[in-house]
Design a protein around this nucleic acid. Structure first.
Length: 241
DNA sequence: ACATTAAATTCGA
DNA sequence: TCGAATTTAATGT
């Protein structure tokens, strides 16, 4: 315990939350009064690496936005293996499925990195849903993109070789709708990527090496930089579409 | 599975 | 508080 990273003063923390909410992609057409109310009702929490943000089976009353860091949505099998279903990077929101259906969470959400996560209460979420057209459009678009990604993952498992599967997983993290703030450098270990894709770490390493030789990515310690996203997407789509 | 290398932590001044 | 020594974690084959 705890030498927490130098705690930001509450004011800075709140300030960051306010900026994050105001610049969120779903907030574009909210009037000032509504914005202020939404900001007041949201909270930001920080999580140490590896800690649980919410657990499968839990009733969750919040919609989550990743302000900093990275979150994995995953399930653990009885035999103790984890499968990462999605990696959520800074700038994107998750958990709308459980909000809309009023159901228990289907997955664990775990901080993959030290993270700061914004929480919007169910009540606020419902109000926006009832009153704001742009908010509805945003959710519809986001759900559609996620559906596309999961179908894509299924396709790639059946139709693509290992290179294609790695390429797909990487380029998915650059989906402009789901990851509006994506940076070219991802802070992800090869092991984490392997869990996300469902390949062995060794295989992922081999593929990354070859992608690096092709000049498509740059591989570093615990990080991957995408140099040619267009080529990556080309590899990700071979055999599909 | 094993060897190498990067990063994090401990320890002694 | 600095840096060398040790341990732990990630990468490469």
């Amino acid at each position: 315990m705890d030498n927490l990273p130098p705690m930001k003063s509450p004011t800075n923390f709140d300030r960051a939350l306010e900026v994050f909410v105001r610049t969120a992609p779903w907030a574009k057409t909210l009037d000032e009064a509504t914005l202020q109310r939404v900001v007041a009702q949201c909270r930001a929490k920080s999580y140490a690496e590896g800690t649980l943000i919410c657990q499968r089976g839990e009733w969750v009353r919040f919609w989550f936005g990743v302000m900093e860091g990275m979150v994995q949505l995953s399930t653990d099998t009885a035999s103790g293996k984890t499968s990462i279903l999605a990696g959520i990077t800074a700038g994107s929101w998750f958990g709308e499925g459980s909000m809309l259906k009023q159901e228990k969470r289907k997955f664990d959400a775990i901080a993959l990195r030290p993270s700061i996560v914004a929480q919007m209460p169910q009540k606020t979420f419902d109000e926006l849903l009832a009153n704001n057209l742009h908010f509805n459009r945003f959710l519809l678009l986001q759900l559609n993109e996620r559906l596309g990604q999961f179908i894509g993952a299924l396709e790639s498992e059946r139709l693509l070789d290992d290179t294609g599967r790695v390429a797909r997983a990487l380029s998915q993290l650059f989906n402009p709708v789901l990851y509006p703030q994506a940076q070219p450098t991802l802070q992800v270990s090869q092991n984490e990527l392997a869990l996300l894709i469902g390949l062995s770490r060794q295989k992922v390493n081999q593929v990354l090496q070859s992608l690096q030789t092709m000049g498509i990515v740059d591989v570093g310690y615990r990080q991957i930089t995408i140099l040619q996203l267009a080529k990556l997407k080309l590899l990700a789509n071979r055999g599909v579409e």
